[in-house]
Nucleic acid binder design. Structure first.
Lengths: 127, 127
DNA sequence: ACGCTTTTGACAACCGTTTTCACTTTCGTT
DNA sequence: AACGAAAGTGAAAACGGTTGTCAAAAGCGT
């Protein structure tokens, strides 16, 4: 028999459908528990795996070794982060998207994703 | 007292000086043991950490959760990494450098750095 | 060579993730 | 509506890479 519809999968899918931010498995688990869903962490992991395989989610590794998931979406953006106060600005750059795809294609790479973070000191923190 | 020169640190430094490939801590440990060096895995990890802090090494997270290290080559560049075999190509993009500086300046940020990694599947791994 | 301080390394702890396995749920079929 | 086979769930244990602990060893200014 094929894949079945369960309350837990619906909950994970719905949560990730509502945001375009990257979230870790345990963040998702906490969110759902906090919202009253009765769901196990194991199930969250398995559901996320399935959704990645079904190409409904993108997964990236954070710097501290966790995996973060986000629904695949057109129009992603990058972050400009203040290294003093942590303030974050979302920025977009169509030129970057085009450039990375081009570079990857030039080297024979397919299935391309990228990560870009810009760090600096924001106006308020330059005293 | 300052940092000390030890046989173990010299061995790790020399090994990574000879290659420009990304290697994991346990690969480095194995290499050194195989070459007759008596060195503990813990020491390898600590030495790599020190070298990253001293900006002598770049560290990236592989898809399966390991951290891989490689000596920094001169000149700022980015990485195009195959998420299947780990093969890495260094790419440069003056346009990216200009764009990130511009975006940061537009938002009043100074002291700007950025990180860009491109992930994909290389030609060999597309079977 | 002495002695203070750093470094080492076996081992245990940690943490995110995956596996195990008995129990529950789904859903095509009666 | 009820049955039963197959799929899904979740608590707990296992796993694998990395980090912390601490007593012993090594480096280096004197």
């Amino acid at each position: 028999m094929a894949q079945r519809n369960t309350r837990q999968r619906a909950a994970v899918g719905e949560l990730l459908g509502r945001t375009s931010e990257f979230r870790t498995a345990s963040q998702i688990h906490d969110d759902l528990r906090h919202a009253g869903e009765d769901i196990g962490l194991t199930t969250v992991y398995r559901t996320l795996q399935l959704m990645v395989e079904a190409q409904q989610l993108d997964a990236i590794r954070t710097d501290d070794g966790e995996t973060a998931y986000r629904r695949c979406s057109t129009g992603h953006h990058h972050h400009l982060v203040c290294r003093t106060c942590g303030r974050t600005v979302e920025v977009e750059g169509p030129a970057i998207e085009r450039w990375t795809d081009q570079v990857a294609a030039d080297h024979g790479f397919t299935d391309v994703q990228h990560q870009l973070e810009i760090f600096g000191v924001c106006g308020n923190c330059q005293h």
